[in-house]
Design a protein around this nucleic acid. Sequence first.
DNA 1: TTGTATGCGTTATCAA
DNA 2: TTGATAACGCATACAA
Lengths: 339, 339
Amino acid sequence: MKPKITLKDIAKELDVSISTVSKALKNSPEISKDTKDKIKAFAKFYNYRPNNIALSLKNKRTKNIGVVIPDIVHHFFTTVFRGIEKYANQKGYNVIVCISDESFDKEVINMEMLANGSIDGFILSLSAETQLKNDFTHLRELIGQGIPVVLFDRVTSEIDCDKVILNDKEIAFEATQHFINSGASKIALVTTENYFNVSEYRRDGYLSALSKNNIAVDDNLILTLPYNMENDSLIRDFFKRHKIDAVLCVNEIFAVQCMNIIKELGFEVPDDISIIAFTNGMLSKYSHPSLSTVAQHGDIMGERAAQMLIRRMESLEEEEPFKTEIINATLIKRGSTIN
Amino acid sequence: MKPKITLKDIAKELDVSISTVSKALKNSPEISKDTKDKIKAFAKFYNYRPNNIALSLKNKRTKNIGVVIPDIVHHFFTTVFRGIEKYANQKGYNVIVCISDESFDKEVINMEMLANGSIDGFILSLSAETQLKNDFTHLRELIGQGIPVVLFDRVTSEIDCDKVILNDKEIAFEATQHFINSGASKIALVTTENYFNVSEYRRDGYLSALSKNNIAVDDNLILTLPYNMENDSLIRDFFKRHKIDAVLCVNEIFAVQCMNIIKELGFEVPDDISIIAFTNGMLSKYSHPSLSTVAQHGDIMGERAAQMLIRRMESLEEEEPFKTEIINATLIKRGSTIN
DNA sequence: TTGTATGCGTTATCAA
DNA sequence: TTGATAACGCATACAA
């Protein structure tokens, strides 16, 4: 087939200068109609397209966005990514994805690799290890170099940049209140280690709903599960040992694990125990009964993050103050709660 | 903080030429130790990193791989992507992802956008629409331009390139045979429209297992569901109308939908009806009972695809013949079958 | 041992 | 109306 063709090739073939070709293809009024027609026809025939790399070098902008996420198998990140990709594509940007795999080193290495000219800006959600170490020098350096960064979901107050987060505390409050309204008082929380700031906010919401309703907090009703481990026996113990009316889970995997064990122990969902899960994914939708969930609207988060990033990258006035956008989660009531 | 620095900046600052700096940083023996030390120290202090874009332009290779997939929320594609990303990263490549969203146009546009210098090669799985239209001119053009392409899973024989596929027919045969071995004879197949070539292969495997065991094919036991629709009522009708012992589903969503309805109709899984699902994802793992599945080993497919692509991109001898690698699926026996 | 010139593909400025 | 030149950041063949 036709090989890739450059301005130079066209110029040589048509016996004009490179700059004439360039101008003609940009429809510059400097060039005569005849010449333009000739050049355009030739370019069209050989399917000329300007080389992105050369443009990037010249313009000092790549039209690439770097996205760094801890994980892609989890429904939430998947949907955020989809939101980013969709919006970015509409705006003519491409998306380079790196998976940090919850590792600090991978996060740092990937970002440094991309920061050397490959991308114009970053969208990222902090890895577990980064949150644990509380070390953000890599982010500070990138921002110091003038690379715009947008953090989403797993953010940190240590870094001053644009952010998109969920109203975690409020929605956890709302979910807990929903349990209480339907008569529950022994309400459990199944959560992750605390260095995930989102888990902390959710716990706050849970706690404040209890206290608002004058329900004493029972620390035994808070189950902290290790991330990504086989934890069925912990869960089984938990539900055997304590009388529980309702459970709020910080993700849907915990929730289905809990539900399966609850049923196995002979309890009915939602009659004996109600469940609400964060993340409105496939697991929740297709479980039996289907799970009531907190919809995090990942698509919207992604879209907003991309929007904020692109706006900042394209804005000329440097010193717009950083914003934090809050996405409002919504409670989706399905089969695992009494509504 | 320190701003991004270039060779030129270093040269000016240290009052040497750009090429001296370039050579020094590459540890060239041409340059005296003193000069090298001085330059290296300076570069290190200012955290000099060569600009990827400039390197790409010079070397005519970007170290970027373009990945085009129909969808990212589906577990299979997610795992394939993870495999690609992991391997590519190890080899120093970045991954630019585009989601075709099952649309022919998006597939074409995205690929053309990336093909203008942004990437060195493609890994893709055909969109539904592309398979339906059977139009592959965009692929032919890219390949004609010398851009290497690796197809995975949803491939086509129309295009001559490297491919990675699953042994769909064989594993569908094996799954069906497993049903038969455990005493089933009224075996159903729940599948998608036929223009998905993988569905066709799976159907072939299913049919040949039946005929091998002298079980008459009953077309009424094959349910073709539209992709991505609310199809509960179709499924309910299907299981009401026909006496069925076992169901093979071409994806796990269909499988959990079937299972939920089967249970709702008062049947027991696996005692009354056994189920096997393609895709060993979260849904299968956490359903109740957990689903027996065909593990497609997406990670491995992704890794192999990346490996084939990178090998081809880096190989000097142009004319190595194209290969098709076949990944062997494995049957994972869990709670939805009698084992 | 160091520096100059050239080129990768493009655009913009200025000259003809 | 067209063309020559410089520049983006880097690497390298060649000259000094």
